[in-house]
Design a protein around this nucleic acid. Structure first.
Lengths: 228, 228
DNA sequence: GTCTGCGATATTGTCGACATTTATGTCAAC
DNA sequence: GTTGACATAAATGTCGACAATATCGCAGAC
């Protein structure tokens, strides 16, 4: 599956590839193409991305620093894998960071475009919820939170949230949302959206934190077989 | 299959250096031995740490991932440098993360040792404040917050806080604390300490957040010459 | 049947050489 | 005195070869 990222001008394009390769690996991890716990072999990725082994090594080091990979001496790197306890720890961090993003988004003087985008996401969520379309709801859910994060305009929040959301990408619990819990989740969203649009930071943060706490409680209630 | 290999018994000494070098560079950055904005030359550090240039390169990549260094193609790495706006952004993140650490520390069933350590730090702070010893207070201040963070037991909070505290290490404003503001800051500390020891999470988080907000307000009021 | 030792293979670790790019210094022209 | 071109030095980027280490299969002893 040789699928180099982006426009693949192996000849014409001067290789500033290092950042591209890193992004490609990140995406594959998020999408589960590289599974949690999987060992990544340098030569395989060098081949897959059509770059030298040295470059892969350096990308690995960067991603270790970013927390995506785990390094073991003389054995290379593994896609990082999280126990339930760790995921719950990350959930606590997620709670306050998403809360901060919501607060800052509410504080901010938003452009018409930003308001429109937030409303559009909310509408899509409403539709998915009313159709009980769990897959669509899941996807839009991520996009919704990402948008709030973008509106907040705080790069560190964005970066840290990215990392702390990692385990959620892979849990991919299709059954995690019952039609009922999805509806309640979306009710949270409506409260949050309203608080942000009306410029009420306290309400936005409180609602968001409660919303995330609900999700964490759900993770805590999952049976052991979902975790390493 | 992926056992998270513990600390490999440090044999003689030869390898494992890579982590040591990384830690050495981190410390030098925190202490200002490498100044913000300074360019780090591979051969110089290779010489300083008595390792090959390749290893320095990999350490650089890791530290870029961790946010300590900034990478510029064909020019190497620079110690990361923060504008006032960025520091204030990080301050917001610091607010909620320190708040979470305080909350979790308050929630937790603390050991006698943990309680003792926290009280000891508070005592040292009190003494420094009563002596109006600004330097000692500054040092203990970091240790105090670090201890709360450790008691909370959340690794992600610890790691993220480390990163988001970076600019404060270097501001090293000897004049930042007047005797008056130091006294007020320590009053905050006493409230926080009490809330943690008495197991009141809401109070601990609220007090901590207010405490950090005060610090951020101070950074916001500094004259431009302190910033790039 | 199980365990141990040993070789074969796969994978990572390290070093050096050289190309490429950037920074520095010199000198002539105006 | 300033500017620009050009040579020189300094630093980074890249690649390949080989060493060190781990993993696996297999034969042989008990």
């Amino acid at each position: 599956m040789v699928e180099p990222v982006g426009p693949d001008d192996a000849r014409t394009a001067p290789p500033a590839r290092t950042a591209e390769v890193a992004e490609g690996v990140r995406q594959r991890i998020q999408r589960g193409a590289y599974a949690p716990g999987q060992r990544l072999i340098e030569v395989d990725l060098a081949d897959e991305f059509a770059v030298g082994r040295g470059r892969i090594r350096e990308v690995f080091k960067t991603l270790v620093g970013e927390g995506y990979l785990e390094f073991v001496e003389n054995r290379g790197v593994y896609v990082r894998r999280f126990s339930r306890a760790e995921i719950l720890e990350m959930g606590r961090v997620r709670e306050v960071l998403e809360g901060l993003a919501a607060r800052m988004a509410a504080e901010k003087d938003k452009t018409a475009e930003e308001r429109r985008r937030l409303e559009a996401h909310q509408t899509t969520l409403d539709q998915a919820a009313s159709r009980a379309d769990i897959d669509a709801y899941n996807t839009e859910n991520f996009a919704y939170h990402q948008t709030i994060c973008a509106i907040s305009g705080n790069r560190h929040v964005a970066e840290f949230l990215m990392r702390v959301r990692l385990p959620l990408y892979r849990l991919q619990l299709p059954s995690s949302f019952s039609a009922d819990s999805m509806s309640r989740s979306n009710q949270d969203h409506r409260v949050i959206t309203a608080a942000i649009l009306s410029g009420n930071p306290d309400a936005a943060e409180a609602a968001m934190r409660a919303h995330i706490r609900t999700g964490n409680a759900h993770v805590a209630s999952l049976p052991d077989r979902y975790f390493p």
